[in-house]
Protein backbone atom coordinates (compact mmCIF):
# COMPACT_ATOMS: atom_id res chain seq x y z
CA UNK A 1 0.00 0.00 0.00
CA UNK A 2 1.49 3.29 -1.03
CA UNK A 3 1.58 6.43 1.03
CA UNK A 4 -1.39 8.68 0.30
CA UNK A 5 0.52 11.52 -1.27
CA UNK A 6 -2.55 13.34 -2.48
CA UNK A 7 -3.76 14.46 0.95
CA UNK A 8 -1.11 16.74 2.45
CA UNK A 9 0.03 16.32 6.04
CA UNK A 10 -1.10 19.85 6.79
CA UNK A 11 -4.74 18.92 6.06
CA UNK A 12 -4.71 16.48 8.97
CA UNK A 13 -2.96 18.99 11.20
CA UNK A 14 -5.51 21.72 10.44
CA UNK A 15 -8.37 19.30 11.04
CA UNK A 16 -6.89 18.31 14.39
CA UNK A 17 -6.41 21.99 15.25
CA UNK A 18 -10.10 22.69 14.55
CA UNK A 19 -11.14 19.75 16.72
CA UNK A 20 -8.80 20.78 19.54
CA UNK A 21 -9.96 24.41 19.57
CA UNK A 22 -13.63 23.40 19.56
CA UNK A 23 -12.83 21.10 22.48
CA UNK A 24 -11.08 23.87 24.40
CA UNK A 25 -14.00 26.24 23.84
CA UNK A 26 -16.47 23.61 25.01
CA UNK A 27 -14.32 22.82 28.04
CA UNK A 28 -14.34 26.47 29.12
CA UNK A 29 -17.96 27.30 28.34
CA UNK A 30 -19.99 24.20 29.16
CA UNK A 31 -22.38 24.47 32.06
CA UNK A 32 -23.20 20.77 32.05
CA UNK A 33 -20.51 18.60 33.61
CA UNK A 34 -21.10 15.71 31.19
CA UNK A 35 -20.44 18.07 28.28
CA UNK A 36 -17.12 19.03 29.86
CA UNK A 37 -16.09 15.37 29.76
CA UNK A 38 -17.19 15.15 26.13
CA UNK A 39 -15.04 18.18 25.30
CA UNK A 40 -12.04 16.47 26.89
CA UNK A 41 -12.67 13.46 24.67
CA UNK A 42 -12.73 15.76 21.63
CA UNK A 43 -9.35 17.21 22.59
CA UNK A 44 -7.84 13.75 23.12
CA UNK A 45 -9.09 12.69 19.70
CA UNK A 46 -7.50 15.77 18.13
CA UNK A 47 -4.15 14.81 19.65
CA UNK A 48 -4.60 11.26 18.40
CA UNK A 49 -5.23 12.47 14.84
CA UNK A 50 -1.97 14.42 15.02
CA UNK A 51 -0.06 11.39 16.30
CA UNK A 52 -1.47 9.14 13.60
CA UNK A 53 -0.77 11.66 10.83
CA UNK A 54 2.85 12.07 11.92
CA UNK A 55 3.20 8.30 12.24
CA UNK A 56 1.93 7.73 8.72
CA UNK A 57 3.72 10.58 6.94
CA UNK A 58 7.03 10.92 8.78
CA UNK A 59 7.61 7.57 10.49
CA UNK A 60 6.20 5.03 8.07
CA UNK A 61 8.49 2.16 9.02
CA UNK A 62 8.55 2.29 12.82
CA UNK A 63 4.99 3.53 13.38
CA UNK A 64 5.70 4.80 16.89
CA UNK A 65 2.84 7.29 16.65
CA UNK A 66 0.33 4.46 16.42
CA UNK A 67 1.71 2.91 19.62
CA UNK A 68 1.40 6.26 21.35
CA UNK A 69 -2.16 6.63 20.04
CA UNK A 70 -3.04 3.26 21.57
CA UNK A 71 -1.66 4.40 24.92
CA UNK A 72 -3.64 7.65 24.65
CA UNK A 73 -6.81 5.66 23.94
CA UNK A 74 -6.13 3.52 27.02
CA UNK A 75 -5.60 6.53 29.27
CA UNK A 76 -8.69 8.22 27.80
CA UNK A 77 -10.82 5.20 28.66
CA UNK A 78 -9.53 5.24 32.26
CA UNK A 79 -10.08 9.00 32.44
CA UNK A 80 -13.66 8.70 31.20
CA UNK A 81 -14.50 6.01 33.76
CA UNK A 82 -13.03 7.90 36.71
CA UNK A 83 -14.43 11.25 35.52
CA UNK A 84 -17.95 9.94 35.22
CA UNK A 85 -17.68 8.28 38.64
CA UNK A 86 -16.60 11.61 40.13
CA UNK A 87 -19.51 13.25 38.31
CA UNK A 88 -22.01 10.79 39.78
CA UNK A 89 -20.58 11.34 43.24
CA UNK A 90 -20.80 15.12 42.81
CA UNK A 91 -24.36 14.83 41.58
CA UNK A 92 -25.35 12.84 44.63
CA UNK A 93 -23.84 15.43 46.94
CA UNK A 94 -24.89 18.67 45.22
CA UNK A 95 -28.07 17.59 43.35
CA UNK A 96 -26.93 19.39 40.21
CA UNK A 97 -24.64 19.05 37.20
CA UNK A 98 -24.16 22.79 36.79
CA UNK A 99 -20.45 23.56 36.69
CA UNK A 100 -21.06 27.01 38.18
CA UNK A 101 -22.34 25.48 41.39
CA UNK A 102 -19.39 23.15 41.94
CA UNK A 103 -17.59 25.91 43.79
CA UNK A 104 -16.73 24.07 46.98
CA UNK A 105 -13.04 24.83 46.71
CA UNK A 106 -13.50 28.39 45.51
CA UNK A 107 -13.46 31.32 47.91
Amino acid sequence: MTLPTEIPLQAYLVLAAVLFCVGVWGLINSRNAVRVLMSIELMLNAVNINLMAFSSYLDGQLIRGQVFAIFVITVAAAEAAVGLAILLSLYRNRETVDMERFNLLRW
Binding site: M1, L3, Y57, L58, G60, Q61
Partner: peptide, 12 residues
Protein backbone atom coordinates in the same frame (compact mmCIF):
# COMPACT_ATOMS: atom_id res chain seq x y z
CA UNK B 1 9.74 22.32 7.37
CA UNK B 2 8.47 18.74 7.72
CA UNK B 3 10.86 16.03 6.58
CA UNK B 4 8.58 14.99 3.75
CA UNK B 5 8.40 12.53 2.14
CA UNK B 6 9.29 10.22 4.98
CA UNK B 7 10.02 6.50 4.70
CA UNK B 8 7.44 4.45 2.86
CA UNK B 9 4.51 3.28 4.92
CA UNK B 10 4.49 -0.39 5.86
CA UNK B 11 0.72 -0.53 5.31
CA UNK B 12 -0.88 -3.76 6.45
Amino acid sequence: PWALPGPASIGE
